[in-house]
Design a protein around this nucleic acid. Sequence first.
DNA 1: TCCGATACTGAAAAAAAGGTAAGTACCTGA
DNA 2: TCAGGTACTTACCTTTTTTTCAGTATCGGA
Lengths: 111, 111
Amino acid sequence: MKKQSYSCGLDAAVDVIGGKWKALILWALHDGSRRFGELRRAVPGISEKMLILQLREMEHYGLVRREVYHQVPPKVEYSLTDFGQSLNAALIPLGEWGEKHMKTIEAIPAA
Amino acid sequence: MKKQSYSCGLDAAVDVIGGKWKALILWALHDGSRRFGELRRAVPGISEKMLILQLREMEHYGLVRREVYHQVPPKVEYSLTDFGQSLNAALIPLGEWGEKHMKTIEAIPAA
DNA sequence: TCCGATACTGAAAAAAAGGTAAGTACCTGA
DNA sequence: TCAGGTACTTACCTTTTTTTCAGTATCGGA
């Protein structure tokens, strides 16, 4: 999930949001901070394991900020950093493209 | 590489350009048609197998057009369809984001 | 005292993706 | 006759990614 050098900007960007879930998590965070459990519900189908794994990676990349509230029961809030927000903004056209062509894409047989 | 339904447009788009190579191939085709061998050289590090696999998938999705010239030695040209071009356009901001932050991304340790 | 909620962690297995290397067919030119 | 170029195909193997599922700690409330 990490190359040493990139052939172009898109290459680098794909490396960062690569995988099945990161883009969706980023998206789910676009309107403010969310707790772990909220995110799990916001990203349908994701397992707890994957959610944490991806969040940790995104935190490592500086896309996401993690804030722990020492309470019981525990509370952890995730939010986008400026870097994360800039990436999210760059993803908007792609999201719109997908929205526009979703019908077409869904109609394509899997095999 | 194909879900039944998508939770949002980005979800669908990521499904379409998912994987290590599709975005790069799309990119390599943005300025006109290319032959198989040209593409292989244009996308550094890709194996012939992966290139064909991805091209076939993209053809299947209607992103790429394949034209065979019955000559010897054989000649096959790949180019973007309008659909492919629209996707490519949606990827431009992402490419620019990657370009802009490439230094930052490269500086992040892999582990 | 036991249950539930929260946010995780770890091991193991399954599935998907990618890599390597060899082989195919065809004609051309040496 | 034989190597060379093109565009693949096939089989096999390794790596990476994702899933599954059980388990941890804490405290409040029934």
